[in-house]
Structures are given as structure tokens and as C-alpha cells.
Simulated assay, not measured.
Amino acid sequence: MSFNMSHETLYLAVKLVDHYLMKELCRKDKLQLLGSTAFLIAAKFEELFPPCVDDFLYVCEDMYQRHEMIAMEMSILKTLKFDINIPVAYHYLRRYALCLNVSMKTLTLSRFICEMTLQKYDYVHERASKLAAASFLLALYMKKLKNYAPLLEFYSGYTTFELHPLVRQLNILLTYHYCDRLKTVYTKYSHEKFFEVTKTPPLDIATLDEIFMY
């Protein structure tokens, strides 16, 4: 069984897990339950026809009981005080792409960069708008579209100077992706459906430093 859910649902589910773990401890054997339940909540919030509890239990290979998932759902919602309308980077990526009127390939590349961060703790505390802006700026640089940078500054509210440290960090993330054990995002964006954006090489340090100088 697979769920054809939106990117917004994915981003929100990850945010729910992050926010929950900032306030509560979770045993290792319950992490899959936490993640699945966060997806359940996010799907209810974002999807027109969300999967039901039994669907998620099936995906978990019946490791958990129905009452456990419902209890976890209540725990997440109470811990977050039912405040689950959390800003996610994906919303900002779509706005920047619309404002700058860039191609779908450039937007997809920025999505790939941003989605890679969902697997990394280093980016948990970054503001969604800033992470999206840095991902988009790096995509522009990689596509040799740095002339769009002033427009991104205008619509994002961040200067390129503010974004450059994060852009550098994201570029390193792409450069050393092969060292990562988590391959799902990279494999996903290697498909033709996503324009095979993984074939777009990250920038070398010298090129990035040269761009930063201007």
C-alpha cells in the first residue's frame, strides 16, 4: 500500500514530530508510531481524502494497536495545544517560484534541496521562510540564474548576505549526499517525473565563493 499525499503533508508531518520531540520524550520503539501518527494528523489537515487509522496501522505492519495510535494522536495534539497550523518551507517555495516566475525545473530543484533537509537535525531550528529562501537561492545559483537573486531578496525579505551561510551549508549537504545512509529523497528526485534534478551538480567551493563576492 502506498499513499499519494501532497508535499505539504510530508513537511507538516515532519514538523509535528520535531515540535513534539522538543517537548516530550519518546521511546525508540515508539518512534515509528509517532511518525505514522504525525502523518495521520498532517493528512487530516492537508488532504481532501486522508487515509484512515487502519491504513497507517497496515503500513506499520500491525506493530501497533488501534488504541495506541489514537492515544498517540491525542498526546501529540495535547502537547502542541492543538496548534498544528505550522508554517512549512514548501509553502514558501511555491510563493517564491510564483513571484519570480521561474521554470518548474528550477522550482523542483529547490524542492529537492529543501526536502533533503527534512532528514537532518541541523535544520530543525531554521525558520521555514529562511530555509526555503536559501534552498531557492542555491537552486538559482546552480541553474546559473543569479540575476534573479534581487527579486528573491525583495519577495523573501532576506538579503543574499543573510542567506549565504545557509546556502553554503545546503551546498555541502548536496555535495556529500553519497555519504548519507538515507537515500529516499535522492532516489525520488532522480526520476524523470521530477526532471532528474539530482543530475544538476552542486557548486564547487571556489565558484560559490566567487558568487558570494558579488
Rank of each mutant, 00 (worst) to 15 (best):
E47R: 02
Y96K: 02
Y214D: 10
Q119W: 03
K44Y: 07
C52H: 03
P87C: 02
T159H: 06
E24H: 04
Y148T: 04
A128L: 02
H67I: 10
D83P: 00
L170R: 03
K44L: 05
I205P: 01
N101F: 00
L25Y: 13
L182E: 15
L16G: 12
S190Y: 02
T159A: 08
I172Q: 08
R95A: 06
F39L: 15
K44A: 04
R181N: 13
L203S: 09
Y186Q: 11
P50A: 06
V124D: 02
A134I: 10
T159F: 08
I86M: 11
E68T: 03
M22K: 14
K120M: 12
T207A: 12
A133D: 03
A89M: 07
L98Q: 11
A71P: 02
F39E: 09
T79W: 07
L98G: 10
L137R: 00
V59Q: 08
Y155P: 02
C179Y: 14
I70G: 06
M213Q: 15
K188Q: 14
T159S: 15
I205L: 13
L25S: 15
L151H: 05
S36A: 15
V88P: 06
K44C: 06
E162L: 13
F112D: 13
S6W: 01
L33C: 05
I205T: 15
M74I: 02
L140W: 01
Y58G: 00
K188P: 00
L98F: 09
M104L: 11
M72T: 06
Y92M: 04
Y58Q: 08
L77K: 08
K188N: 07
L152V: 15
K15V: 00
Y148Q: 12
L203F: 11
S156M: 12
L173H: 05
L48G: 03
A38C: 11
M116K: 05
H67M: 08
F195R: 09
L33D: 03
Y58E: 15
Y58I: 14
Y178F: 14
I113F: 02
E115I: 00
A97H: 11
L40R: 04
K15W: 00
Y214M: 07
L10V: 14
L166S: 04
N85A: 12
K143H: 12
V124S: 01
D180F: 02
K15S: 11
Y158T: 04
F82Q: 03
A97K: 09
V124A: 03
I76K: 13
M74L: 12
L170V: 07
V124G: 00
L118Y: 07
A71V: 01
T108E: 13
N85W: 05
P201S: 12
I113A: 09
L93A: 03
K130N: 04
A38W: 01
C26T: 15
K28H: 12
G157L: 08
I76Y: 14
E73M: 01
Q32T: 05
L12Y: 06
Y189G: 09
L98H: 10
